[in-house]
């Protein structure tokens, strides 16, 4: 699911699990962390970058903390810039758009999902 998010254009994914030792599914959040680590290894191997996925542990009552984690992750991803996939896709999209713009009256400018600067931070709650 996390890899799919990157395929679909996410620049970063933050996975939020409940506090360790306090999971309704006992070790669900521990397993989730290991799986996130595996995803990070895959992202490193595929050239996307391991630092684009992160797991944090929060309780359902830590709304303010969630906001600060999300904001910090958002800054972190903005600093990294768009994922290499989005860079390639936006370049590919820019070529026909530029060709169209050259035509008299043709619509110009890139746009749509995956363009440069497009940032999607997807926080998925792994376990309640």
């Amino acid at each position: 699911m996390i890899l799919k998010a990157f395929e679909n254009g996410a620049d970063g994914v933050m996975v939020v699990g409940c506090l360790e030792g306090d999971c309704h599914y006992l070790v669900g959040n521990i397993r989730a962390r290991r799986r996130v680590e595996r995803v990070a290894r895959i992202l490193a191997q595929t050239g996307i970058g391991a630092q684009r996925v992160r797991m944090v542990n929060l309780s359902a009552g830590e709304g303010a903390k969630f906001v600060s984690h999300a904001a910090e992750f958002d800054d972190h991803i903005r600093e990294l810039g768009p994922s290499p996939i989005n860079v390639v896709r936006s370049k590919a999209a820019a070529v026909p758009a530029a060709a169209q713009a050259e035509r008299p009256g043709g619509p110009g400018g890139p746009g749509g999902p995956g363009g440069p600067g497009a940032l999607r931070t997807e926080a998925a709650r792994e376990q309640r």
């Binding site: 890899l3 990157f6 395929e7 895959i42 992202l43 191997q45 595929t46 994922s83 370049k91």
Partner: peptide, 16 residues
């Protein structure tokens, strides 16, 4: 299968 297919698509998409 899903993980490997995703990883391959990601790597190849990143490589253009």
């Amino acid at each position: 299968v899903q993980v490997l297919a995703s990883a391959l698509r990601l790597a190849r998409a990143a490589a253009g």
